Simulated assay, not measured.
Amino acid sequence: MFRLLARWRRLPFDYAALPEYMRRHGLLDPYRRCIAGLVALMVASGGFLFFSPIGPTGPVESALLIACMVGGTVIAALWLTRPWPTYRQSVFFVVGADALIFGALLSVADAPTAFTLSTAFLVVGVYCGHFLSMRALSIHVGATVAASTVLLAIAATGPGADVTLLVVQLLVQSTLFLFMPLLTQVPLFHLRDDAYRSADDPLTGVLNRRGLHQVITAHNHISLAEDDVVAALVIDLDGFKHVNDTLGHAGGDDVLRRVGERLRSATDGWAVVARLGGEEFGVIAAVPASSFPACFTAVHDSVHSVVDAVPITASSGLAWRTSTEFRRDHSDVEILFRWADRVMYDAKRAGGDRMGVVHCPPETVSERAAERASVRPDPAPHAHSYDDVA
């Protein structure tokens, strides 16, 4: 059990993975409406308490229940009318839903019944198990167990309370609060882990094209600072046939592995690195304009090392846009890589072991139409300096 939990904790978490899968299969909007309907149903259930003998009996309790119902109505409306929430918005939803459920239960006049109804927290727990991280799920479980304990304490002070039965009920509820979302999250996280592995290039350990697409899609919502530059770098190793002829294919594979390691080390988490195919690699990142030249020059230079038995150099092409020109769209990323690829071939034709740079301006309407038809106009002559970045 503990070994399973330890492995579960080490698994990568990508909030966008499951919503993106649901979106591709046409499930995201129906699921979002179902959540809105479920929240609305819980609000309606709270309304029926006013017609029950165990419902709120005083003005304070009635006002508390009405406030919780209004909050639930707002949440249901947001789920119904807004797009799928960001991770932060999902956390706020869980916190708000837990607080509203707890408030509604405090308004119930019969404390043992309120304690029994605290199983409503399970609904929120299932959402946590599907979409939130292990840390968020752990906090939710702790909060709901604490809330149930408070309700138990209130119920235990009532006349004729069966404290032993209440404690047994708390143990059962705590087990449900923990294991229902846990049994949901563990297999989902392992599926995501398999998806991450299928997105990796097995030889070099960096992402493959599929993984690059997944990461870009997952990070489309990330905001950019005004002075950021979004850039794509295409790196193609020079004379790789000579490397294979000299070292053999096993030696060539070892060279590719070393290049992958050097690119990961040079980017150190601030960029996404992928093997695009053969001896070609891609790097994409959003960095401040002031550090943009040095960052990507260092990535290009990291390919070569004096310790190599056969010297390795690369021809690279770098295409960039300012944050205001970048539309945070996957098609923009594809365009940057296409321009970078052309600049890379210019560098290779010029003798290799160099990096060309081009500013990729936003497309006109006609250029976007040509892009959709897979007919791109030739890029403007590229600059080999960064003077126009500043």
Rank of each mutant, 00 (worst) to 15 (best):
V167E: 11
S223K: 13
S302L: 04
R10N: 10
V43P: 04
H304D: 09
V389T: 06
H382Y: 09
S290H: 06
D308F: 03
E20Q: 14
A146E: 01
K348G: 04
L188R: 13
D110Y: 13
L49N: 12
P379H: 13
R376D: 01
G46C: 10
L212H: 02
S305G: 14
F326W: 09
V168R: 14
P362M: 06
A6H: 13
S198A: 14
P159Y: 10
A143D: 02
V186Q: 15
P311V: 12
S198F: 13
Y196V: 14
V124H: 00
E371Y: 11
P181R: 10
L276T: 02
V94G: 00
D388W: 12
V74A: 14
L105S: 00
K241F: 08
F48H: 10
E280K: 04
F189K: 15
L117M: 15
V172L: 15
E261G: 06
A274C: 04
S52F: 04
H130F: 15
S107L: 02
S90R: 10
A271H: 05
P181T: 11
R257I: 14
A390E: 01
E363H: 11
D387E: 15
H221N: 09
P83K: 09
A309V: 12
D308Q: 05
A114P: 06
A156V: 07
R197A: 11
W320R: 05
S223F: 08
V172G: 15
L276K: 03
A314V: 13
L212E: 01
A350P: 10
R210V: 04
Y21S: 15
S316L: 05
G252I: 04
P361Y: 02
